[in-house]
Nucleic acid binder design. Structure first.
Lengths: 224, 224
DNA sequence: CGCGCCTGTTAAGACGGCGTCAAGATCCGC
DNA sequence: GCGGATCTTGACGCCGTCTTAACAGGCGCG
């Protein structure tokens, strides 16, 4: 069952979206402000979030950033603002799509399908195990020897990119631009520091890593 | 390197996009019609496609469908048509995003980043085998007798150029300029050293190579 | 047969990348 | 505003890679 969280403070729009989405076979939960939206996102496993930026309590972009701190669920942003700065800000904060009001319901549904099409493929193997540790991409957790491993946000982002592409070589530029942004493509210092920290937390033998491998001069690779 | 294919029949827009994208660090290839776009997509490994729907030869949606037959590369559709039927059609045909002309370049770039964020180079599965060794271009790995062969960055670059053009004669100048840069076209010494290293690592009998062949006075050739 | 050209081979030193550590800056919750 | 966690920044030693040079061998040609 595909479950969608709709966040909007306009009760009429909320109702219209719920009815439409349910008619198309989606399970719908709703929230009217940022606080309850974040709460709902932590409690229910979601396939997609439709997020209105104009919320009464918290700035929509802040909601988005906080959400991205613990979830990689696809987010479709609704907004009344047409300015390209707004779009850029939301997209760079982690939104996957951005449409402006007023919009056609059929377009919304089509964009929703396009987003879900992508995430279905990615969601498949949400738990990756190695002999030393386990990464649960959906729940955003890492366990080792039965206990939880505490990762900082940055550590998690790096690990996530690597684990989502097992056995693949990820270049330093790809990692840097995905975690810090496209402008940081030359700060390879960061990677050295964080890869060391990840290995200390995850690898049994830091000196000879077996799962987080270095390809000197190019990038890093995760081996299950 | 993130590579983008831009498909548009308007030379001005094409030029503007190429310059902008290159300025932001993307490698850009271009096509002006559907036929050459599909051809380019089969030949080059792509990270993303920007596709204008109004092409001179084939209907844009048809191009998209055909592309989806062999590739899951993210596609961002450009179109002059604002109608929601057009958007729905393109999105359901496999597009990941749809923006209408005229559009802001910053918005285009932001949407492009959002798409790339989801897919770290789902490179096509290009694996080339010989009786002695296997080259996995997507995973960036070389195996021989079941074990991994450790290649240095330079060794890999040379091998990659040769393997991507099987049976083709690659001149020393082509190799040098692709690996070391155009300024090194006369340092044929480098090639001698690295071809020897590659053969030692890959060829069963270094004295009589069977896959990494020399064309005296001209260049080298890879035979599967 | 001897010479020159090109290639293969090897080794040694220069160089740069990587892992590591620690201290300072910054952010965030309380 | 305070304290703790996180991120940034810089420095350093080590090790692998690249560069460079020298020599051997093959081949064609005069």
């Amino acid at each position: 069952m595909t479950s969608v969280l709709v966040v909007d403070d306009d009760p009429h729009l909320l109702r219209a979206l719920r009815i439409t989405l349910q008619a198309h076979g989606y399970a719908v939960t709703t929230a009217v402000d940022g606080t309850s939206a974040l709460l709902a996102a932590t409690q229910t496993p979601l396939s997609l979030v439709i997020l209105d930026l104009g919320l009464p309590d918290i700035d929509g972009t802040s909601v988005l950033k906080e959400l991205r701190g613990f979830s990689s669920v696809p987010v479709l942003v609704l907004s009344a603002r047409h300015g390209s700065e707004d779009k850029v800000e939301a997209l760079d904060a982690g939104a996957d799509d951005y449409i402006t009001k007023p919009f056609g319901l059929d377009e919304l549904l089509a964009r929703l399908r396009a987003l879900l099409r992508r995430s279905v493929e990615a969601e498949q193997e949400a738990v990756v195990r190695t002999e030393a540790f386990t990464v649960d991409l959906g729940r955003h957790r890492v366990t080792r020897d039965g206990g939880d491993v505490r990762l900082t946000p940055t550590e998690w982002k790096i690990l996530e990119v690597l684990v989502r592409n097992p056995e693949k070589l990820i270049t330093q530029q790809q990692l840097l631009s995905r975690v810090w942004g496209p402008a940081y493509a030359k700060e390879t210092n960061y990677l050295r520091v964080y890869m060391a920290q990840l290995r200390r937390k995850l690898e049994p033998d830091t000196a000879s890593p077996r799962h987080l491998l270095t390809e000197a001069g190019i990038g890093y690779r995760f081996m299950p």
